[in-house]
Design a protein around this nucleic acid. Sequence first.
DNA 1: CTACACAATATTGTTAACAATCACAAGTCT
DNA 2: AGACTTGTGATTGTTAACAATATTGTGTAG
Lengths: 225, 225
Amino acid sequence: MNQTAEQSIVSGVLEAIAEHRLKAGVKLGEQDLCEIYHCNRAHVRRALATLEAQKVVKLEPNRGAFIATPTPDEARNVFQARRAIERVIAENVLRKASADDIARLRDHVEQEQQARQSSERRNAIRLSGRFHLILGEMCGNEVLDEFLNELVMRSSLIISMYSASQAPLCGDEEHELIVDAIAAGDETALLERIEHHLHHLERSIAIETDNTSPNLKDILQPPSG
Amino acid sequence: MNQTAEQSIVSGVLEAIAEHRLKAGVKLGEQDLCEIYHCNRAHVRRALATLEAQKVVKLEPNRGAFIATPTPDEARNVFQARRAIERVIAENVLRKASADDIARLRDHVEQEQQARQSSERRNAIRLSGRFHLILGEMCGNEVLDEFLNELVMRSSLIISMYSASQAPLCGDEEHELIVDAIAAGDETALLERIEHHLHHLERSIAIETDNTSPNLKDILQPPSG
DNA sequence: CTACACAATATTGTTAACAATCACAAGTCT
DNA sequence: AGACTTGTGATTGTTAACAATATTGTGTAG
């Protein structure tokens, strides 16, 4: 119950972020988490420290823990880092993917399409991110895999912040094209498609760059004055 | 004194690792850290959690905190990740380096050479790692910079584990060649030199790959039988 | 009616005491 | 002598109480 408590909190929060149930800025009260996970504050605090280290939670002194609110700059940096990391991951996967691996990828892509067609939006979002994590698992480099995990989480936050709630998440067939390139052993096509896919994902969300007004006046000012 | 306490512990431990004062496997007792940094166990615990998240400290339940002991596999993974990250960092730096930046790099390289010539080994080690961190600061991408920080720390541990204590750390002039390529705006040369430098660093330490015997018998068996 | 000051409440930060576990050493038995 | 058991001390894990701070609500003056 010891490690389990902390890990339950961490993985619970991360899953909630991945499924866009937890949105940026939401407060994570210690008492609330204590009751939800039936543990004491020490465990909650440790879990929050771990989440802070992964940059998905911001700890403000004497105020509490909040889901991180990535800035536009941070968003761009995250996506650039993803392109760098996923490029190497793809190279590794291409080199060492077995027939089973490719079958697993194809199976996952099919699940994604079914979730989309069934309009299980929450599940579709989760599976869409999971595709990249599967590549991370397959690449044979735990360090890269851990980095990717963090980046995908942060991406999920960014998407939930900046993208329209009804916008299509991913090009449906882009993941499939990536698997095709892996199956064909075509490194040039693979790298190009990874790059294109991430650029497309980044551009599909409108990252406002000029959010220099930290006050709510411009947003919530009543129209009548 | 609050945030300072935890950050003092974290940065203190990281600096000690960077200078090879703290070696892999050393125990970090809570009581010891409390006395050294004049704080209570809660702060120490939080600092250790942060260090664990950065993979430089391993927390073993009911046993305590220990400086991480990277395996050969992990070592290779760290270096592969470094090549991927530092490649992008170098591209960014090349694109946006100012004259001041280049001057700063040249100044640093000169400090490195002086430290080496003065045989201030500890300082030379620290500066050698710091060169890469300066590139990270200059690249304009905090995400990449944070990843690099973690990787350089882990590399420092790896080097202190696997390299002979008297071995030359880095080729003296490799950093200088990198700065030259940046100053000349030569991307091809820059990327090649970064790649070469990291490969050279990795190969300069003898990472044993066949440590498949988990018992000490083969190693510590008295010769007389 | 607005703005400011003050009080009440809730939340986080800190500390200390207690419990559980582990490492080491002494002792016992074969 | 060697291996096993037991007991002691030290270290980590857990919990609760207390202090400090922020937030919210209330009341009063302008």
